[in-house]
Design a protein around this nucleic acid. Structure first.
Lengths: 189, 189
DNA sequence: GTCTATATAGCGATAGAC
DNA sequence: GTCTATCGCTATATAGAC
């Protein structure tokens, strides 16, 4: 492997470590020493890949953004809008144990970043923003009234359930609420 | 006024300042210096009223808990369970501007405290826990199946909407989702 | 009870050798 | 590119005069 490839490997290891630690501990509680240690990179070397700590958070957001894009692209292959919408909620159902333990990665990130009003916040809202916009287009394709309101209701339901599931450490709660939302989708129109 | 009363006054000023700052900035970003300054108390004097920083967070939780108890007691005076339930959601609607700016105080507190697994977390879950338990009893009084599931759906809907409202800085979003949930209540059974 | 001054520790960031 | 050592700052918490 070339040097540049090995460098990219270290960079991606740092982003992966940061993403995992941020989900488990939150942004504020995750230190650069934590990240460097988890990624097996010397602390001082982190600054070769990221100028500031904020840049790492930025990279974590972009990492989530890429995963969302990939997920929505996969869901777009389904035939009906209802199948696509239900496929989205199933993501939280499938990772219910993780959600119960650490919360929804997107929700937690947004809740925390909403508290500091810098440039990172504006970027983070794209995560939930993309989900809402995508869901809105699905509801619109179904010819329903107020597709935006339906999309907000749907994503809010998932995210709120993730909060309760995490707060009570209750994974079945997450699965049950996804089932309820899927029934709601089925009965629409 | 006696000394003990003036002391209680200072203590309550500290709790009030902490509560406000925690809502606006989050637990982690709020320092003791912030709290002391806002409450007009000398930094070193804070430790006369609270042994550790964690004790202040504990007091903030208890402050919210007392407000929840008072709110639910007021709502219990309404005649029908549906009126009581809708009265709860209207709390978020009435404070939509605050929610859009700083998020739901309870949701934000829980999201943040769920990340650290100490004794404070166990106490914080009582906040959302009380809301869910109260809503469950209202749905049960209506004779509906799965009152617990309905309560989770309701509180999750409110909290999820608060997250989206805060993320997008969109107060009307909060109001609109409360209206949708109130219609859902009206159409039940 | 209240205040000032300070001990102590941890974290982001940098310097500089290799 | 990588590492060790360390600076500078901030935050919790304490000491001790008043």
């Amino acid at each position: 492997m070339t040097n540049s490839r090995r460098s990219e490997d270290k960079r991606s290891r740092l982003v992966a470590a940061a993403t995992e630690l941020v989900q488990r501990q939150g942004v504020q509680r995750t230190t650069l020493a934590d990240i460097a240690d988890t990624a097996d990179v010397a602390l001082g070397n982190v600054y070769y890949y990221f100028k500031t700590r904020e840049d790492i958070v930025h990279a974590v957001i972009e990492h989530h953004e890429a995963e969302i894009d990939a997920l929505l692209a996969r869901l777009d292959e389904r035939k009906s809008p209802k199948a696509r919408l239900k496929g989205l909620a199933e993501q939280w159902s499938n990772s219910a144990d993780m959600v119960a333990h650490d919360g929804c990665p997107l929700g937690g990130l947004n809740y925390e970043l909403n508290k500091c009003h810098d440039g990172v916040t504006d970027h983070a809202q794209n995560l939930l923003g993309k989900l809402v916009a995508w869901a809105e287009s699905q509801f619109r394709e179904l010819g329903l009234r107020d597709p935006r309101g339906l999309a907000v209701h749907y994503i809010a339901g998932v995210e709120g359930a993730a909060l309760l599931s995490n707060t009570f450490g209750d994974a079945p709660l997450m699965k049950a609420e996804v089932r309820r939302l899927e029934r709601w989708i089925d009965d629409l129109a």
